[in-house]
Design a binder for these strands. Structure first.
Lengths: 244, 244
DNA sequence: GTGCAGAAATTGGTTGGACCATTGGACCAC
DNA sequence: GTGGTCCAATGGTCCAACCAATTTCTGCAC
């Protein structure tokens, strides 16, 4: 590690300066997502600030999803950083009621359709192969575990978001995914939850492989529609309140 | 083995607990945005945690825009909080390059299309009348000011988001709108920026009035497509870098 | 009483040092 | 190999100060 890439900082606005210095460091060292950055103690020493200040700065980055801290292990880069990043922290007054869940699904439907369409436009042969691989894994898991393939299912969708070439898709949907799963852990009493959506994964893939954006968009819409139907059936069964 | 049957164990989550307690406090005291919440020292004492831990928690809230800290004065609530907020920190790399702008536009295209479709499904006669009113105002402004109708244009779209019945559309797009306008104030040197999109506002309205979700979706896609074209022309003129 | 300058208290920001809990590797007995 | 134990490294928490900005109070001049 080049020690000159971590010069001491100068004035007030300490933690901002720490982050700025850290951006410079990441670029100087060409750190990639997944790599570990220096320990808090080293950063504090090099930047001539207290470790608490370093921690406040890293806490902000962690909140933005730029970094992940693992106790006993280190702090790891989670996304690419650049000097002119724009942060748009969006907090939605979501609820645990059925209505809010449907609202998130409507957003997901919009993004899923667009991502699939963009994916069909832009996928390289290697991308298509990668998506097919995820699809095979998912279908395999679906058959052997009789429908419980949520993890593999999610990876399939993530692959599509990535190939869409627009990182915002993954960021937004990942945030909603977490909310969704607070509810989804127990499939709302619907035994075969998600079964209906299964075939559409392959049809989406086929449209992508055939470079058919409109088709991919349409199939993605159908997929989410089946999830919405499942959700409605589950809500009806549980007599879930439709309002908070 | 079902991976879900062995979730990661939850050990320590001090600052999360602090935030949870703080949510409870805000609700118990019915604090409104703008009001001051207890000092860090008091929070630390009451919650039986160190002040550092309180600060890390507040730093996270500050990063999310929920709270504002003023040295010497106090910490003030900036937005309403609820126990089940959904946090969506979006960071887009490279603020003013063409690629990032296109990324935000792709998200907007997805949401705009879906909002228009939902709007066509759900609009009441009163809603339709309201949208038409906004449309008339926009068209009037467009004609008298020769294309400079961004404010009225925005209100027309907002009306559609509202009628869609899903508040998330407006929240997400509003956040991106602000971001977008930091660079959009000057229409990238394209003199008639936005002109091409003008007729589609009325066609979208007509589809909504005719309760035609598919048509509304298609027209919304066309509208954004014209904006994308304008943007590309502007980028070509300015020789804007397509990468960071 | 009023107005205002300066002192004092309040509050977030920073520091340095200490200890705890977890992680992951090294090492060892089996 | 396998399974333990130990140990150093690292993030998480705590404490007790002090600094810097702000607010509030005090007391004096008028």
């Amino acid at each position: 590690m080049d020690q000159n890439s971590l010069p001491p900082i100068q004035t007030t606005a300490r933690d901002d300066a720490v982050l700025k210095a850290l951006v410079g460091f990441v670029r100087a060292e060409a750190l990639q997502p997944g790599e570990r950055l220096p320990t808090e103690r080293i950063l504090a020493e090099r930047l001539k600030v207290s470790r608490n200040t370093v921690r406040e700065a890293l806490t902000r980055w962690e909140g933005l999803g730029l970094v992940e801290r693992r106790q006993g292990s280190g702090t790891y880069l989670k996304a690419a950083v650049s000097p002119d990043m724009l942060h748009m922290p969006l907090t939605l007054a979501g609820g645990n009621d059925f209505t809010s869940l449907m609202h998130t699904l409507e957003i997901r439907r919009a993004l899923e359709a667009e991502a699939a369409a963009l994916c069909a436009e832009r996928a390289s042969p290697a991308d298509i192969a990668e998506i097919e691989r995820k699809l095979d894994i998912m279908e395999q898991a679906f058959r052997t575990r009789d429908g419980m393939s949520s993890e593999e299912d999610w990876e399939f969708h993530q692959a599509i978001y990535r190939v869409s070439g627009n990182p915002l898709f993954e960021q937004i949907i990942a945030a909603m995914h977490e909310l969704f799963h607070r509810f989804w852990e127990h499939p709302l009493g619907v035994r075969d939850f998600g079964h209906a959506s299964f075939p559409y994964h392959r049809t989406i893939y086929q449209c992508i492989a055939a470079r058919d954006p409109q088709g991919a968009r349409a199939e993605a819409l159908k997929l989410i529609a089946t999830v919405e139907d499942d959700l409605k059936r589950g809500a009806a069964k549980l007599k879930l309140p439709s309002q908070t």
